[in-house]
Simulated assay, not measured.
Amino acid sequence: MPVKKKRKSSGSDESALKKCKITSFCRTQIPSRLINPEDHFSSKKCQSWFYEYTDTDEVVGPEGMEKFCEDIGVEPENIIMLVLAWKLEAQNMGFFTKEEWIKGMTSLQCDQPERLQGKLDYLRSQLNDPVTFKNIYRYAFDFARDKNQRSLDMDTAKSMLALILGRTWPLFPVFHQFLEQSKYKVMNKDQWYNVLEFSRTVNTDLRNYDEDGAWPVLLDEFVEWQKARLVV
């Protein structure tokens, strides 16, 4: 789950793209103790587990989140962490409140790291259903934005797009380059939603793109920019 950082001046397209690529692998896991299948979920154990990562505000913050990821053997930037946040209905990227934790982990029936490790394949499988994937994608916009802003700053938008679409959308590297050189500093919700629709319906050669369709200007400009590059 990428933590927002202060905007830095952009370098070359290649270095910027490398920077925004998100890993999809899990850490090498230390062999965990076996779980007795007869042991039922315990709310008390779930709460105690939460407090292993909290600060005085009873919120799992960045430091606690890093330890949590180590315990379950998942990189913080792994897309599984976004799916988990969606399951917990977390409101702020990089943070889990006690209420979110208890409600979400109870739903998953996880009260210790080993149980959640056993759910990782299930969490990843949620991305295979088109409807669920769309829900997670839409959730990511409000999850990642600053709550006092209506739009995503472009650095965060590029990182989140890399996380969600970077591995599956062939045009993502080109779209990322377009965003790098464009005038856009933020991405609004309508643009965010339409990028997913664009990635699902428009061919890589862009020939089936309807210029008279109800696409945001950002995507019209991307298509025009890419077609000009292909001519050259």
Results as ranks from 00 to 15, higher is better:
37 P>C: 07
211 E>N: 14
149 Q>N: 13
118 G>D: 13
7 R>P: 03
56 T>S: 11
16 A>D: 13
161 L>Y: 14
97 T>E: 01
99 E>S: 14
137 Y>F: 13
161 L>W: 07
219 L>I: 09
51 Y>E: 15
232 V>H: 15
92 N>P: 01
76 P>S: 10
190 D>F: 07
34 L>V: 12
213 G>R: 06
161 L>Q: 11
215 W>N: 02
173 P>I: 13
224 E>G: 04
83 V>M: 07
232 V>N: 14
56 T>E: 15
82 L>F: 04
196 L>F: 10
4 K>H: 13
62 P>V: 10
14 E>G: 01
23 T>L: 11
223 V>S: 02
104 G>N: 10
224 E>D: 06
118 G>M: 10
150 R>V: 15
115 R>C: 02
142 D>P: 00
104 G>Q: 05
22 I>A: 14
67 K>Y: 09
46 C>T: 07
35 I>Y: 03
135 N>A: 06
230 L>Y: 04
221 E>S: 04
2 P>E: 03
72 I>G: 03
102 I>H: 00
108 L>H: 03
178 F>M: 04
129 D>M: 04
51 Y>I: 09
160 M>T: 10
128 N>Q: 13
212 D>K: 14
66 E>M: 12
43 S>C: 02
57 D>H: 05
49 W>G: 03
214 A>W: 02
114 E>V: 08
43 S>M: 11
132 T>R: 11
171 L>P: 05
49 W>K: 00
68 F>A: 03
64 G>Q: 03
173 P>G: 08
211 E>H: 06
149 Q>H: 12
226 Q>S: 10
41 F>D: 02
219 L>S: 05
21 K>C: 06
92 N>R: 08
213 G>V: 09
123 L>M: 11
202 V>G: 05
99 E>T: 15
15 S>L: 13
115 R>A: 09
2 P>S: 10
184 Y>T: 05
219 L>G: 05
152 L>M: 11
128 N>S: 13
70 E>F: 07
215 W>K: 00
147 K>L: 09
230 L>C: 04
19 K>W: 09
8 K>Q: 14
182 S>H: 12
96 F>A: 01
176 H>I: 06
64 G>N: 03
98 K>N: 13
88 L>E: 01
125 S>I: 14
55 D>T: 05
43 S>W: 04
218 L>V: 02
49 W>A: 11
199 S>I: 07
146 D>A: 14
15 S>Y: 12
121 D>K: 09
151 S>G: 05
69 C>S: 14
135 N>M: 04
93 M>I: 13
